[in-house]
């Protein structure tokens, strides 16, 4: 094992971290917005939209992400004239935006299922109470349903974020030079797969470790009612000096 080489590789791989994080963050934000919409459509069983959303989730969860990435990046190129006339071509010819689109759509399907579980765990009596107080529509969601659902869904949602970071590695197959892209290049240049794997693995583990800590902290912060009361030692002072 050549530790000097691992160190050198590590430094080169660090250059890929910003792109990895940017892809994960942007795609995750878009996915979250979509997932909330899908989850609400499916829990309220809005006709037609519910069926469409169900099919969307089934297809995106049942096919490999790599197929979805190729379909968007290579497949949509076939419709170049149409896309050009719609003004979308400048985005869809760029591997960065194709990656964002594929990652966001894919993750929205998984995340919507997690959120749906969260929404279903909101006790009916809480909703009824809120309605009795005259809350409805957006306010009911904002004040009662979403706060409960988000707390319930958070651990699963955190896992989805980790999966998203791992999924960004697939964008290296459509030429993006994020951490895995640089790692693949270094492997083919140096032909030392084990050392490069260790260096890249350390980077991903570090990112995911930090993210799991952040999510655990968020979970702790959002659930003060589940914390054990802190026992404060009573200060005993003599009544009379």
């Amino acid at each position: 094992m050549d530790f000097a080489f691992i160190g050198q590789t590590f430094l080169q791989l660090l250059g890929g971290i910003p792109l990895t994080l940017k892809l994960a963050a942007v795609a995750f934000l878009i996915a979250s917005v979509l997932a909330v919409l899908i989850a609400i459509i499916r829990t309220r069983k809005i006709p037609v939209l519910d069926q469409i959303a169900g099919f969307y989730v089934f297809v995106l969860r049942g096919t490999p992400l790599l197929v979805q990435i190729f379909l968007i990046y290579y497949g949509l190129g076939q419709f170049r004239p149409t896309l050009q006339s719609l003004g979308l071509w400048q985005f869809l010819r760029d591997p960065y935006w194709c990656s964002i689109l594929a990652l966001a759509l894919n993750s929205s399907a998984y995340a919507s299922e997690i959120l749906r579980g969260g929404l279903r765990s909101v006790p009916v009596r809480e909703i009824e109470t809120a309605r009795a107080y005259g809350m409805s529509g957006l306010r009911l969601y904002r004040r009662i349903i979403l706060p409960i659902a988000i707390r319930r869904a958070l651990p699963g949602y955190g896992n989805e974020l980790i999966l998203m970071v791992k999924a960004t590695s697939l964008t290296s197959t459509i030429t993006l030079m994020e951490v895995t892209g640089i790692a693949a290049k270094l492997i083919s240049e140096s032909y030392r797969p084990v050392e490069v794997f260790i260096a890249a693995g350390v980077i991903y583990l570090a990112i995911n470790f930090i993210l799991t800590r952040v999510i655990a902290l968020l979970d702790w912060w959002l659930t003060p009612h589940l914390r054990r009361p802190r026992i404060v030692a009573a200060k005993l002072e003599p009544a009379h000096a």
Binding site: K166, T168, S169, S172, T180, P193, A200, G201, Y204, N208
Partner: peptide, 9 residues
Amino acid sequence: GIPDLLVVY
């Protein structure tokens, strides 16, 4: 915690 693609490589 490591991407599957790296393991394949």
